[in-house]
Design a protein around this nucleic acid. Sequence first.
DNA 1: GCAGAGGTGAGTCACTCGGCTCACCATCGG
DNA 2: CCGATGGTGAGCCGAGTGACTCACCTCTGC
Lengths: 211, 211
Amino acid sequence: MSGVVTTYHQRIAQEKRALIVAAATALFLELGYDRTSLARIAERSGVSRATLFKQFPSKAALFDAMVTESWSTADEEDPPPAGNVVDGLSTIGRRYAELLSRAQMTDLFRIVIAELPRFPELANAQFSHGKMPYFESVRGYLLAEHEAGTVRVEDVDLAATQFLGMISNYVFWPTLLVPGWQVSAERVAQVVDEAVRTIVARYAAPARSDI
Amino acid sequence: MSGVVTTYHQRIAQEKRALIVAAATALFLELGYDRTSLARIAERSGVSRATLFKQFPSKAALFDAMVTESWSTADEEDPPPAGNVVDGLSTIGRRYAELLSRAQMTDLFRIVIAELPRFPELANAQFSHGKMPYFESVRGYLLAEHEAGTVRVEDVDLAATQFLGMISNYVFWPTLLVPGWQVSAERVAQVVDEAVRTIVARYAAPARSDI
DNA sequence: GCAGAGGTGAGTCACTCGGCTCACCATCGG
DNA sequence: CCGATGGTGAGCCGAGTGACTCACCTCTGC
């Protein structure tokens, strides 16, 4: 992946490959797997069909490359900042909401969900690049604070899922179901803040065994 | 829709129609829209292709009928029981989790999400038969209790979304992403109970404006 | 200046699809 | 008994599809 020997014929090949993947991404996300033909991909990328077959052995391989490289654009985040629980959760929550709000991510989720029966291994990628990093961040925060005695969280996994669920259920589902749906940045921030308040209120509150 | 004049030739037509829809449902949910051909539907339902075209003008019409009739099986619930907030929310939450856990519903959600760009009107059906009834139930409970002074919920819509999100994020996403995923009934009940506790802890707790 | 890597355009192949039509058959109701 | 309603089987059509091949062109790098 680094700046290897460059071999100036391979350079062109990589450029062509990038063009193919870009065109395939746009077409797959717009039309879905079946309705996207290799001919259209070749046409849109300005590459001959023969080149396409030399670069990718099959349509499935091209689809897989498209998903993989799309995910890689979502992994540019640096680790969450240290600080108190409220600030930490707010930061993670806002990033999570921002990820789920991107139109490109929504379309990617849609096609991955649609094609999961045919590409079951994509579920792992969906988890590892989507929910998992945020889940682990939330989990880490809650666990640390629990051990510090600030909060009392018996089921950390459940609490983290609750937190992310309160956000995704508001931000993600409408964008996934209604094409072109937009949630204002202010509303997103408000939703995240309320989610943080709810989690804190639950697990920082004195134990109420009578409920 | 009632037991009309029966016309004993139409009876056979309706039986054939039911066979067609049943076969189409199985094939659409298993293979998706594009990979399901009308020929296979006719074959599986034991009906000739000509009959299929007489009953349904197009593949899209058949798909629409399939989705509509699949949703109708989800609307057999009676109104939620009266009682205190905790019991009410628990009942609604359990029903919601049960709905989201059904394998058939998961497959239906999957294909609806996948085909939404082509059938945008399905989003309305998704809402009105899926989340909406439960959302309204939760909303009604919280609103009534708010007006009664038991709890203090400024944004009832948000609170209802939070509650359902805590459940669906645990129950629904894994079943949607991982084929064959199962969550035990005990765990589901536990998740619902914890969601109720969290909501109650947040909105029944004394106002903490300092957070 | 030439070998070879890589891209190109055109074309072939076997196949499937949704849509449609037609002549013919089975059964019920008057 | 006979007409009408509805189902049947077969076949055709135009359009795409993924996969694959081959002769040819265009550059780079030695």
